[in-house]
Design a binder for these strands. Structure first.
Length: 646
DNA sequence: GCCGTTTTCGGCCCGACTGTTTTCAGTCG
């Protein structure tokens, strides 16, 4: 769950609604954790967790749901939570008992939950009996041998806590998609290479391409005869920092960067991103990092079921399982079993009677559904779409013909115009947009109007030469303009008129984060109204694992763009493909698609390597149900040129 | 805490694994 600090957010002054959907979801999650630490009823805790997840994946406007009273009709929100949320949203006050929970729980207890193998029950017990209320005091108690003699504890538990405290200092709750995938793919490759492994597949949120990944799941198909040798081989792989558990079918591990065959580097980082993610220490931090991983070993005929189960999401699984139940079938990680045959049998024993499935598609087919791509498995309408044959034909990297937001050495890029163009051609693109920073952004060496126009003349020359040689490649000339006070662009209109397009981006984050949603949104609406503005760059301003974005109503922004588009003026929203940003998120993508606002998948490349970040943008776009025609990237150069005429 | 009901209480997902026990509780996913 996002939002590192464990505190109740303050109401925003412009409310109601006084809190955002995300804030409320976070608070519900916090309350669930605090209740657990208090030793509350587990089902009560689960209610808060369920409600948190429900709001987290909500596409409707929470303010409206509360205002209309619809909130009380949602499955999982009853009288208690419904009134609590209504009070928070409409009055800006959290319930008193939630406030008490936050005040009365030592923050150290929450920190202790991060120690592997330590849960709320044992933390509470140690707090009650030994007065342990922080990781530091736990370490002291363990070193003084106070833990082992306690009932239910022992020498092993005590030692595991000490080991866990060491690992905790290297642990990060979630990793960005790019980092998580690098770990996951390295681990998956090593397992796949083991003798006796039929197939090893990365499942879980990595397979669903979430923008951040909590832990890795790998499903391994292996004959029962080879089970033990394969499990042992996995435990002996390099890159394992700790074994949390190892049984017949399940291995639970902590990996670190020794999993990589070459030394770990993070590559170029935009200077204004670097500060937000840990400054100069960032590379060290990642190099010393760890990630949790689970491996499931199953026989080949069971593997499709296990893969589907551990790919999730949990919400998608529930929706599909319900469909199975409606058809008299029991769906779990072992099979799809007719209830009449399963009877009282459990687990693998019941699975003997499972319907056969050679792959995941066959499981969906048994349930009357088309194959659902992993990226869509979030219970956001994909099950219905799979039933009615209306799943999208998702965009793929091979559809990409170019991208609009790229930098050169004219501002803060590492590569020349020529090298960027050459690399784009080698990637199979037919066009490339150059959008260097504008003068106000001094930290990024923003280019003067004079230099910008000179760059334009160079681009024209290249385009003329390529046209003459019959080369199917062209450059488009734009600028990434800072958005100035009053929603103005950073160049005079006569300079902007010389360009093919403008990416308008927020950079002065201190100012934007200090303002409320209404003022920020108004500012963006104004800059969209400027005739020169084509693309709204990295619209949320968030940096994953770094900082939250600024307050803004992007739904209103998208609707405003849709009006312009209807009147023939191209206004596109950027899906920033840099793995540090990955905004839009998939929810906003879906909304843009619904409104017919084109999505511009842009790597925001500062180097030739940066161009390949487009892959992460495509993954995120797929999560947002984006098809090639929903983007500007799949247009041919000639078609894009037509769209860019202002 | 929520839900559903042959409606006001009883059930709420559950299997794997560990470390403690000697039959089970806690943790995890």
């Amino acid at each position: 769950m996002a939002g590192g600090s464990f505190a109740l957010p303050k109401p925003r002054p412009s409310g109601p609604p006084y809190f955002s959907r995300n804030q409320v979801a976070n608070v519900l999650h916090q309350v669930a954790v605090l209740l657990e630490l208090q030793g509350a009823n587990v089902f009560r805790v689960r209610s808060y967790q369920n409600a948190s997840r429900l709001l987290g994946s909500l596409s409707e406007d929470l303010g409206e749901l509360v205002a209309s009273g619809e909130i009380f009709n949602m499955k999982g929100i009853g009288k208690g939570l419904g009134s609590a949320l209504t009070q928070a949203i409409t009055e800006g006050r959290w319930p008193d008992d939630w406030i008490d929970l936050h005040t009365n729980t030592p923050p150290g207890l929450i920190e202790m939950l991060g120690i592997p193998g330590l849960g709320p029950k044992r933390i509470k017990l140690m707090a009650d009996e030994l007065g342990v209320d922080s990781v530091a005091s736990l370490k002291e108690a363990a070193l003084n041998n106070q833990i082992a003699p306690m009932k239910g504890f022992g020498a092993k538990s005590q030692q595991r806590m000490l080991d866990g405290i060491e690992l905790l200092s290297r642990f990060r709750a979630r990793r960005r998609l790019d980092i998580g995938l690098r770990y996951g793919e390295a681990f998956q490759r090593k397992i796949a290479a083991i003798d006796g492994v039929h197939r090893a597949t990365l499942a879980g949120s990595a397979r669903r391409r979430k923008d951040t990944i909590g832990d890795l799941d790998v499903v391994v198909a292996v004959d029962e005869a080879d089970h033990e040798t394969v499990a042992n081989a996995i435990l002996n792989l390099s890159g394992i920092a700790d074994v949390k558990g190892a049984g017949d079918s399940k291995i639970s591990l902590i990996l670190d960067t020794t999993i990589f065959d070459e030394s770990f580097t993070v590559g170029h980082i935009d200077p204004n991103v670097l500060d937000a993610i840990g400054g100069d220490d960032y590379e060290q931090l990642e190099a010393g990092g760890t990630i949790d991983a689970q491996v499931r070993l199953v026989p080949p005929h069971v593997e499709p079921f296990t893969l589907a189960y551990f790919t999730g999401s949990k919400e998608h699984n529930i929706a599909v399982r319900q469909r199975a139940i409606d058809r008299g079938l029991r769906l779990n990680e072992f099979g799809l079993i007719p209830e009449t045959k399963a009877g009282d049998l459990k687990g693998m024993e019941a699975a003997v009677h499972s319907l056969g499935a050679a792959d995941e598609a066959a499981i969906y087919a048994h349930l009357g559904l088309a194959y659902v791509p992993p990226e869509l498995r979030e219970d956001m309408g994909e099950v219905l779409a799979a039933e009615t044959g209306s799943l999208p034909s998702l965009i793929e990297t091979s559809h990409i013909k170019g991208s609009l937001h790229n930098h050169t050495t004219l501002s803060d890029g590492e590569a020349s115009l020529e090298l960027m163009a050459d690399t784009a051609r080698k990637m199979g693109w037919n066009w490339l947009g150059i959008a260097d920073h504008s003068p106000t952004l001094k930290i990024a060496n923003g280019a003067s109007a004079e230099d910008l126009l000179e760059q334009g003349r160079t681009i024209q020359q290249y385009n003329a030469e390529w046209a003459e040689q019959g080369v199917d490649f062209r450059l488009f000339h734009g600028v990434e303009s800072d958005i100035l006070e009053g929603g103005k662009l950073d160049h005079p209109d006569d300079v902007l008129a010389e360009l093919d397009y403008v990416v308008a981006s927020v950079h002065a984050m201190t100012k934007w984060r200090g303002r409320d949603e209404h003022d920020n949104t108004e500012e963006l609406l104004k800059v969209i109204d400027h005739p020169a503005t084509t693309v709204l760059g990295h619209p949320t301003g968030r940096i994953l694992q770094g900082r939250e974005g600024y307050e803004v109503d992007l739904y209103a922004v998208l609707e405003h763009m849709a009006e312009h588009n209807e009147e023939g003026r191209l206004k596109a929203i950027e899906l920033n493909a840099s793995p540090y940003r990955l905004d839009l998120d998939w929810r906003l993508c879906k909304h843009a698609k619904g409104l017919g606002v084109p999505v511009a998948i842009n790597p925001d490349a500062h180097s030739i390597r940066g161009l390949s970040d487009i892959a992460y943008g495509v993954m995120t776009a797929r999560k947002g149900w984006i098809e090639p025609n929903d983007t500007l990237n799949a247009l041919s150069g000639a078609d894009l040129a037509k769209r860019l005429v202002r």
